[in-house]
Simulated assay, not measured.
Amino acid sequence: MQTGFYNATGGMVTQMNRLDVISNNLANLNTSGFKRDDVVIGDFVRLYETKKNELPIDDQTKEAAKYLNRALTRVPHVVEEYTDISAGAVQTTDNVFDFALLQPNAYFMIETPEGVRYTRDGSFTLNHEGRLVTKEGFPVLPKEYVDGPQYIDIPEEAVVNADKDGNLYVKILTNETLNETIPLGNLAVVGFENPQYLEKTGGNLYKYPEERDAERTFNEGNGTVMQYALEKSNVNAVLEMTGLIETQRLVEMYSKVINTHMDDLNNEAINKLAQKA
């Protein structure tokens, strides 16, 4: 087996996977509340050290050696893919239904056909029923939803205000006492004991394991919510472009190594063997 060919192939596949991640980050540069992804690249030795205790044979025996090819210990692998949950910059808007979250471990609760999901994108609107929803039409949920299906319905001719904890208040324009503020409900803003278990499901939404619901807590008294504002993505275009160029160059380099093995080294080996024959 040509070890160099295998090493180069593994390296190129790894960089192509990294390229997909960087491209997705750049595509969501202007997506409100988007969190960039990144990868950790390791080698076979790291994977082996992590999993060797799970092998069916003790790793110090000769029989166990067949699980580890010493010639391939430095082949690159994507060891882990993770999401950077650091907060993005906040941009003020003129939309009364735009809300930014100022704490990194805070998410709005959203109802979808697949169940409850979470998002940092606070760009909301009203549907034809006057219900507060996401741009995709998914209802934005209040805290009381955990006790039974409840939603945030905005009365007609109402001016909506939110405090820093996500509590909502309205003033009815048709009311004789226009200065009267009426409590309407709240935005459910939750944090997680172990946010690393959040899984992206598409559409700027996250899923948290149902069996870990006990780790979900409501953010109260933290001053987390800011109305008339949106959180921008935490993607740094300069850093991503630098990574993109670096990855493309590595792919080209690995491709040249593969071509050298296939075209030059193989031909040379065949010619020499033919001459000896």
Rank of each mutant, 00 (worst) to 15 (best):
S255Y: 14
E114M: 10
I270P: 05
G223T: 05
L173R: 14
I152D: 06
L132D: 02
R74V: 14
G122I: 01
N7S: 15
G33K: 11
M109T: 13
A214S: 15
G221E: 09
N24K: 10
I152A: 01
E211C: 04
L168K: 01
T125E: 12
D59T: 13
S32K: 06
E215W: 01
M12L: 14
M109K: 14
E111C: 01
K62H: 04
V78Q: 11
D98I: 02
V40C: 03
A64K: 04
T119P: 05
K171F: 01
Y197P: 01
Y228A: 09
N204Q: 10
L55R: 05
A214I: 10
V79P: 00
D147S: 15
G191Q: 12
L173Y: 01
N271Q: 15
M16V: 05
Q196S: 15
D20I: 10
P195C: 05
T93M: 02
L126P: 03
D59A: 15
Y254P: 09
V146W: 05
L265A: 13
P149E: 15
E49N: 12
K232I: 03
I110M: 04
V159P: 00
L198R: 07
N267H: 13
G221R: 07
K62W: 00
Y228V: 05
L250V: 12
M226T: 05
T201L: 04
G130C: 05
F5T: 06
N271S: 15
V96Y: 00
V21G: 04
N267Q: 15
K207N: 14
A162V: 07
Q103E: 15
D121W: 04
S233D: 06
L168D: 02
L250Y: 04
D98R: 06
F5V: 02
R120H: 14
A158I: 01
Q103K: 14
E54K: 13
E231R: 05
L168I: 08
E199K: 15
L230W: 09
K272V: 09
I22G: 03
Y6K: 09
K164T: 13
E111Y: 02
F97H: 08
T31S: 14
A106Y: 02
D165E: 11
D165H: 06
Y48I: 00
D20M: 07
Y254S: 12
A162S: 13
L132A: 10
E81R: 15
D153M: 07
D121R: 12
P209L: 08
A237D: 07
Y82L: 12
E252A: 14
N179T: 12
D20R: 07
P56M: 11
E80R: 15
E81M: 14
G202S: 05
N17A: 11
P139E: 03
N175G: 06
I172D: 07
L198G: 03
V146A: 12
D59E: 11
A214V: 12
Q2G: 06
K51C: 00
M241R: 07
D263L: 13
F108I: 05
R249I: 07
A162M: 03
L141W: 09
E211N: 13
V133H: 02
L101Y: 02
V257K: 08
V251C: 08
D163Y: 00
T31C: 10
A274Y: 11
A8T: 07
Q227C: 09
S32E: 09
F138D: 09
Q103P: 00
L19P: 04
Q275S: 11
Q91P: 00
Q60I: 11
N53G: 13
